[in-house]
Simulated assay, not measured.
Amino acid sequence: MAHKKNNDDNQEEPVIRDKRRVDPETGNVREPADAGDGTDGVDASASAPAAGTDGAAADDDTEDGAELTDADQVLLDQAATDLVAEMRSDMLRAQAELVNFRTRVERDRALNRDAVIAEVIRSLLPALDDLALAETHGDLKDGAPLTIVAQKIRGAFEKYGLKQVGVKGEPFDPAFHEAVVQLPNPEVTVNTIGDVISAGYVLGDRLVRPAKVAVFVPAE
């Protein structure tokens, strides 16, 4: 029995450590365990880099690597300048092409307009010839109904710039006159219109119909 008692006395009681952060009796926050107390004493700050030392240096290295050098900045500025110059050149070329296109459209529109007017006038020239013949015969008297009609028709044509060409006594011009007959005449030194068979007409710079004339040519 004594031996058993000795064994019970030598047996170590288990050690219980209270790791609670808050003391249940006082309610105060306990200080962390000492460094020598196993894993509980490990200082967490020892494993983390100190503020402003290695971490800051790493950040500085990263930022320094992202910065452009002077040579890179010059190349970037030159590329931007070239791009702006190219875009400006394209814009000016597009504007010039647009202006040329508008000019061509306006010119073609004017030419088409003149061509249509000239064609309409050409179809009405026989009526003008009849009015001119009636005037020659004395049928167009002041105040007569036919005279008023003739004045209105001629005024409408003149409104569009229609002009008569081929006048007796003026020099012969093959660009506007058509020689029906040539008669030698010692009184002229150049080919001259001796008589107008039918008047010619121009609309602006466009010849609607050449004048048919008799031409006096110098006698040999």
Rank of each mutant, 00 (worst) to 15 (best):
A35N: 05
E97C: 08
P49G: 08
T103N: 05
L92N: 09
R113P: 00
L133D: 15
G65Y: 12
L75G: 06
G27A: 03
V202Q: 05
A94H: 06
G36K: 10
E158H: 02
P14K: 01
A33M: 08
D195T: 07
A35Y: 06
P145N: 10
L128M: 14
T81P: 02
D195E: 15
V42I: 15
L83D: 14
D129I: 02
T147S: 15
E86C: 04
D195L: 09
H3G: 12
V202P: 05
G194T: 02
A175G: 06
A33K: 11
A79D: 12
T136E: 15
K5R: 13
D130I: 00
P218R: 00
P24S: 07
L111Y: 04
D54G: 02
T81F: 09
Q164H: 00
L183Y: 09
G38D: 14
L68R: 08
A2S: 13
T26K: 04
Q73K: 12
V15G: 08
T62F: 08
Q78T: 13
E31S: 11
K4D: 12
V99A: 05
E63G: 10
T103P: 01
A127P: 00
A44F: 07
D77R: 14
Q151P: 07
R21Y: 09
N191I: 02
E86W: 08
G38S: 13
T69K: 05
D129L: 04
V167M: 03
R206S: 11
A144D: 12
S123A: 10
V190T: 14
V165D: 01
L125K: 00
D77T: 12
L146S: 12
S123M: 03
V190N: 11
D82C: 07
V196L: 07
E187M: 01
G38N: 11
T192L: 01
P126T: 00
V213E: 00
K212M: 12
L207M: 09
Y160E: 12
V188M: 02
D60L: 03
M1N: 12
R93P: 00
G27K: 01
Q11I: 10
I193Q: 14
V29F: 13
T69I: 03
A127F: 01
T192C: 03
L128K: 02
K168Y: 06
D59P: 00
G38K: 09
I193S: 13
G200V: 04
A56G: 05
